[in-house]
Amino acid sequence: MFPGVNGFHWSPVHIIFLSAFGLVLSVLLVTLAVAFFRTLRDVRSGRAGAIAWHCDFEDLPRQERLCRHAFEGAAPGRLCDRGFDCRDCETHPKFATIETRWPVTLPAGLEYPETRLYHRGHTWVEPQPDGTALIGLDDLGARVFGAPEVVELPAPGTKLSVNGAAWRMMRNGASVSVRSPLEGEVIAHGAPGGQWQLRVKPEAGERAFRHLLSGAEAHAWVNAETDRLMILLSSTPTGAALADGGALVADLHQALPDAPWDEVSAAMFLNC
């Protein structure tokens, strides 16, 4: 390589040739380095959760990416293209004004109080008078997962981002990451086995809750979700089927121990 060593000699062709390849190699290395440093920057600035959700959302099966207005009939079959973040969605306000066409009754036995707001990842949010909000698993989510063996809550002070990871729970080999319904800072943990898991100080303003479901809209969504759960359970090799019209048991996990709970929980909690 070096002039004079073992008779190697440089020519202008060598210089052109090696510069061209040196350039290509540097472009490749610079690209990798840029991606690496941007990753560091994203992780440090707390954008990791949002980006991970973006990637996850792309890989979700089609039926899990339906727009919230698909359930109540305003936009049947419409796919969401914003990662379930309706806060800045331009079409959401327009669809919201359309009157629902489909009558909705909540599946028997499920409780979805009107005082709470619901997130597509099966959590509820209850705004408190002091400006904080409580977060817990919704009724269907609680019945699917039952009593978790381990719950890993984020330390107080942790910043949550919408759809990012809120907490992790494990049971009998199945492990899910529960998606955060709100953007904000974790203030306190709920009592183990209690109704709520996290107390959060959300970002200020009405906008913070715009992407959450409530009332009849939430009921329509729960209806669709119950159907989806039944399809998931009936298509598994265990052959377990839930009789239509009957009430869901409190702990499905216990009732159907052989079902592939890893799969089913991942599907219900929008894990990839």
């Binding site: 472009v27 990798l32 991606a35 690496f36 941007r38 991970a52 990637c55």
Partner: peptide, 19 residues
């Protein structure tokens, strides 16, 4: 993908794929 920084790296790398 359970390691969040992997997904972030994937995302950042994917933005540079045209290069």
């Amino acid at each position: 993908r359970k390691i969040p920084s992997f997904l972030v790296f994937e995302w950042e790398l994917h933005k540079l794929i045209p290069v």
